[in-house]
Design a protein around this nucleic acid. Structure first.
Length: 506
RNA sequence: GGCGCGGUAGCCAAGUGGUUAGGCAACGGUUUGCAAAACCGUCACACGUCGGUUCGAAUCCGAUCCGCGCCUCCA
């Protein structure tokens, strides 16, 4: 498989440092608030990457950190009166819940900054000793700061494609008297003795923003690990600074990371969804209304490096809906319905020559299967894989339709159905879709939709019984009136051979 | 100002030198007591604009118009 590398700006074959193994470090959340759709995009993109890599037989060690020490956490905790570590732990738990709801596997290792202060001290000390960083003493009673000397690292700017002169020409860098150069950035920030922090060789303080990822990735994966991943907004300055720190500290062990992967943004009204613009939608909001798998499918329907727009509609009654996610949820329902139909039927294969019509169908299924796997292997072409998935599902449903109609051809059709089932299950597994068992999905979906629409399932069942009674008396007009009344509430009645069931519309 | 990304049929969205992407909506069918689901067909010989290269360009090159991002906390 191959992936796009931000450092070389090209799609390159994956070449792990140790054959058969893949070490991945992904920048996780700063836990001062609940996650929004932008966080979901990053998590889903790299969960997909890990799934595809594993499907290629690689033993992946997936590390995603939690930044649980940060000024924003402190500020938010002060507002609410909560202790900063308690707030950070609470938000980390909510983040993990949200990501699981999106079908993301838990990371193999989830390091916390608060558990790696010693490693941070050691790295900063090393940088100071080699003159890559300098200490600025703080006021009385306050710890000192440590800054990284950007000009001491020759490769600065290689990831983001920036030159030092251009950065200065930008002239939007905050002027800080204590820095020797405006571009220097903090490795350690001093604080007052009473404030949230840790003692250090430079006095009381907290880590700077970028140092934690350098320290934790080194601690867990060592230098020269395979993949460093995160959102595109982290390229500069975060990842650029990580490279500078790590490679300045251990020049002999460069590169810090072999390949850099970055996901694109989620846009609302063509603008980036972000905290600062205030245009974000939290995952709590989305998951209250929609299936997490629907959001996952929606995100995967767009290439991970391009932009994704996230539409929000306000209905007349004030309710907020997400039309794109509703549509994706119907597609999830289609795929589940197809699988449920498969599970309910028994097929028996026949050997021998396949008639031309069925041979062609089998060929289409196999071609779509191969296309999906090839697309995923080529820089995570999930959208193309999903398109192939619909083709397979369509072929499967057609074959199942014919299986009911053409009894004599059942053995032939069983071969198409068998190949399609295998393909559908394999591709959706790699995509991380349909990971929830059908029965549980059906139950949870019905409960959620009833709750949203304010419906009582028991009352619906009573109406269904009333309609059955009417139909038994050949009073079709009354039966149809009941159907129409329920339909107006978003309840569709499904008449099947074993009675009537219902589904609630998205 | 510097660096970068994108403009594909009514809508969403892949692809990226020659052969059907896919979905949604709409419409017409098959099926159904009526429906739903499922399936078939149509919309679809689409690729911002103008030039150029080529036997052939949505795809490569140049110019240009729009939109967006990063350069400051950010996934």
């Amino acid at each position: 498989m191959s992936v796009y590398d931000s450092l070389t700006r090209s799609v390159r074959p994956l070449a792990p440092r140790r054959p058969g193994e893949l070490s991945v470090y992904c920048c996780g959340p700063t836990t001062y608030d609940v996650a929004h759709v932008g966080h979901a995009r990053s998590a889903v993109a790299f969960d997909l990457f890990v799934r595809v890599a594993r499907s290629h037989g690689l033993r992946v060690q997936f590390v995603r950190n939690v930044t649980d020490v940060d000024d924003k956490i402190l500020a938010r905790a002060k507002e609410s009166g909560e202790e900063p570590p308690a707030l950070a732990a609470r938000m980390a738990e909510l983040y993990a819940e949200d990501m699981r709801a999106l079908g993301c596997a838990d990371p193999d290792v989830e390091p916390r900054v608060s558990q790696h202060i010693a490693q941070i001290h050691s790295l900063v000390t090393r940088l100071v000793a080699s003159d890559s960083a300098y200490v600025v003493p703080g006021p009385a009673g306050t710890g000192g700061d440590v800054y990284f000397r950007v000009r001491a690292f020759a490769g600065y700017g290689k990831l983001s494609g920036r030159k030092l002169e251009e950065l200065q020409a930008g002239a939007r860098v905050e002027v800080d008297e204590r820095k020797q150069d405006p571009l220097d950035f903090a490795l350690w920030k001093g604080c007052a003795a009473a404030e949230w922090g840790w003692d250090s060789p430079w006095g009381r303080g907290r880590p700077g923003w970028h140092i934690e990822c350098s320290a934790m990735s080194e601690a867990i994966l060592g230098h020269g690990f395979d993949i460093h991943a995160g959102g595109m907004d982290l390229i500069f300055p975060h990842h650029e600074n990580e490279i500078a720190q790590s490679e300045a500290a251990f020049p002999a062990r460069a590169p810090f990371a072999r390949t850099w992967m970055h996901n694109g943004f989620v846009n609302v009204d063509k603008e980036k969804m972000s905290k600062s613009l205030g245009n974000f939608v939290t995952l709590r909001d989305v998951l209250a209304r929609n299936d997490g798998q629907a959001l996952r499918l929606y995100l995967l329907s767009h290439h991970y490096r391009g932009p994704v727009s996230f539409d929000v509609d306000k209905l007349d009654d004030g309710r907020v809906v997400f039309p794109g996610i509703d549509e994706a949820e119907r597609k999830i329902e289609y795929l589940y319905t197809t699988l449920a139909r498969l599970d309910a039927m028994t097929v028996a294969l026949t050997a021998g020559e396949l008639p031309k019509e069925y041979a062609a169908a089998l060929e289409r299924v196999k071609a779509a299967h191969a296309r999906a796997l090839a697309a995923l292997a080529d820089d995570l072409g999930a959208a193309a894989a999903i398109a192939a998935t619909y083709e397979i599902a369509g072929q499967l449903n057609e074959a199942m339709d014919l299986h009911q109609k053409r009894k004599a051809d059942r053995g032939h059709l069983a071969r198409v159905i068998g190949a399609g089932t295998l393909a559908l299950r394999e591709i959706t597994a790699v995509l991380g879709l349909l990971t929830v068992p059908f029965a549980r999905w059906a139950r949870e979906t019905r409960e959620r939709r009833c709750r949203i629409r304010g419906l009582d399932p028991a009352a619906i069942e009573a109406e269904i019984q009333a309609r059955a009674d009417a139909r038994a008396e050949k009073d079709f007009a009354r039966g149809d009136a009941i159907r129409a009344a329920l339909a107006a509430q978003g309840v569709e009645l499904l008449d099947g051979p074993s009675g009537t069931t219902f589904r609630v519309a998205v």
